[in-house]
Amino acid sequence: MPNAILDPTGRGAGSVTSPRGGRAERHGDLAGLRVGLLDNTKHNALLFLEEVGELLVSRHGAASVSIVETKANFSVPIDETIVSRFRQACDVVITGVGDCGSCSAAAVADGINFERAGIPAAVVLTDAFTVTGRTMAEVHGAPDFEWITTEHPMASLSPDEVRERAAGLMTQIVDTLARVAS
């Protein structure tokens, strides 16, 4: 009997993280809800998020932008402490903008963590990072997690172009945060 060839991954063939549920409940609209923004530090991300926050308040009935935080490390998903702070301070959250290798993957994980904590989350990635986002969703046991995709690149846009980009995504963002699952 020959010796078996050893698996170098430590995870075994075909092993995947078993799906764990957790899509936060939606209310159909954003009336009176408090908005949280989680900035991943990438260039133009905060400007984009602030513009989305303003539009949610001025045009979509949200009460206010009630919490804005900047990630300490854009590569690593946020921990339970930060999720708790958002759970206390807001009702829905927008995060991004995923426009790099590790920050896109981490933004997807952040969105999954918010949803599991009961906070509807709109995660924005550029379209160059679809595969890494999907891989991260699988790693975190939420293979069907949905995020919002915008055209790459985002970092080189002018401030006016960033605001335009935000305005153009509002329908999707509102839908993501408010649509009750059918």
Binding site: P8, T9, G10, R11, C100, G101, S102, S104, A105, F129, V131, T132, T135, M136, V139
Partner: peptide
């Protein structure tokens, strides 16, 4: 490189985005 690829599972086009 193989430890990163296989144990961390950071593979090109997936979690590795060079």
């Amino acid at each position: 490189g193989l430890i990163v690829r296989n144990v961390f599972g950071v593979r090109p086009h997936e979690l590795e985005q060079a």
